[in-house]
């Protein structure tokens, strides 16, 4: 059974149109014009158990709105959502008992008190058995080193430490589904590394189904097998990252450095640049592998060095956003 099923999901907002100036403001009191904004426009997808999926898309694309509907915060205009077979609007309490949610821009920790107090609070709210609580805390301490910050008031934690705290708080009740809304936003390299490691480990150890929204392409490359790209409320791409890259950018470049200026040609590769003894070939991954091409060339001439230039993932994403 799929852990998450979303079918024909739509969310519309009424946006009041305001006219400018004082005259406009008075007019607005009597005549209200609304424009319907379709933030999420007929989205469908399913996510099997234990998968890590990234939701990406430009700002205002509808990612967060979708996550908020899936977690029971917003009521959809139409469409169906099932999380573990239950509807998050009709059955909110049951759904959230088995759901962890972290918003990168917002904390659920108690600002005034030591971090540990927030964890205890979760224990009471989710009725977590003592043994399970201790066990989870220990597992997560091994990954995130939470013990060293557990006695610091939340307001004095750095952003990276606070994020670690938020992740732990969201996982203490061992939810089978975890939603992460921009979990690495604003974090430094160390912070991002810790968060990604945590996500990978939790997914491996507990088989948690994870959806994350992000603008950080490093998150996607390191974590996600599957990518859902949303733009203007619609899904424009859905599939494995590799497949997307191969489809949007099927060609790769191979840069070969020769000992002198005598270079060779190859029937499955096009020479796109020659600079002294450095030659750039372009080839299609469908026709020949990078290794095959290097092999062929080195058979025909002596070469000093060869590098395959991967396409930059941001370029791929940019092309995908354009639709």
């Amino acid at each position: 059974m799929d852990t998450i099923v979303v079918k024909n999901l739509k969310k519309e907002y009424k946006i009041a149109q305001k006219e400018k100036g004082l005259a406009g403001a008075v007019k607005n009191l009597f005549v209200r014009k609304y424009e319907i904004l379709r933030a999420v426009d007929d989205i469908s997808f399913t996510i099997p158990k234990g998968e890590i999926t990234a939701f990406i898309g430009p700002n205002g694309a509808g990612k967060s709105t979708t996550v908020k509907m899936m977690s029971g915060i917003l009521v959809p205009t139409s469409g169906d959502i099932l999380i573990n077979g239950r509807n998050p609007q009709k059955d909110r309490v049951h759904v959230v008992q088995d759901l962890g949610v972290v918003f990168g821009q917002r904390t659920q920790l108690n600002w005034d008190l030591r971090l540990g107090e927030s964890f205890e609070m979760m224990r009471h709210i989710y009725k977590i058995p003592k043994a399970m609580y201790e066990e989870n805390l220990k597992v997560m301490d091994d990954i995130l080193g939470i013990e060293e910050i557990i006695n610091i008031p939340v307001r004095q934690l750095s952003l990276g430490q606070r994020m670690r705290g938020d992740l732990v708080a969201a996982m203490l009740h061992s939810p089978s589904v975890l939603f992460l809304d921009e979990p690495t936003i604003g974090l430094d390299v160390e912070g991002k590394y810790a968060i990604r490691k945590f996500i990978k480990e939790i997914n491996r150890v507990k088989g948690t189904t994870i959806i994350l929204t992000t603008h950080d392409l490093g998150d996607i490359e390191e974590l996600c097998k599957r990518l859902i790209i949303i733009n203007k409320g619609k899904i424009v791409e859905d599939g494995p990252l590799e497949e997307l890259v191969n489809r949007i950018a099927p060609n790769r470049n191979l840069v070969v450095e020769y000992y002198d200026e005598n270079y060779v040609e190859h029937e499955q590769a096009k020479i796109i640049n020659v600079e002294g003894n450095i030659v750039t070939y372009q080839f299609s991954k469908k026709e020949i592998t990078g290794a095959g091409l290097i092999c062929d060339i080195s058979d025909r001439a002596k070469i000093k060095d060869a590098t395959i230039k991967e396409v930059k993932i941001d370029d791929i994403i940019r092309i995908a956003y354009r639709g």
Binding site: H94, V96, L99, V101, F103, Y126
Partner: peptide, 12 residues
């Protein structure tokens, strides 16, 4: 401010 989000995410 969107502060009801947190309450809606908890089983109470």
């Amino acid at each position: 401010g969107g502060d009801f989000d947190r309450y809606m995410l908890r089983p109470l």
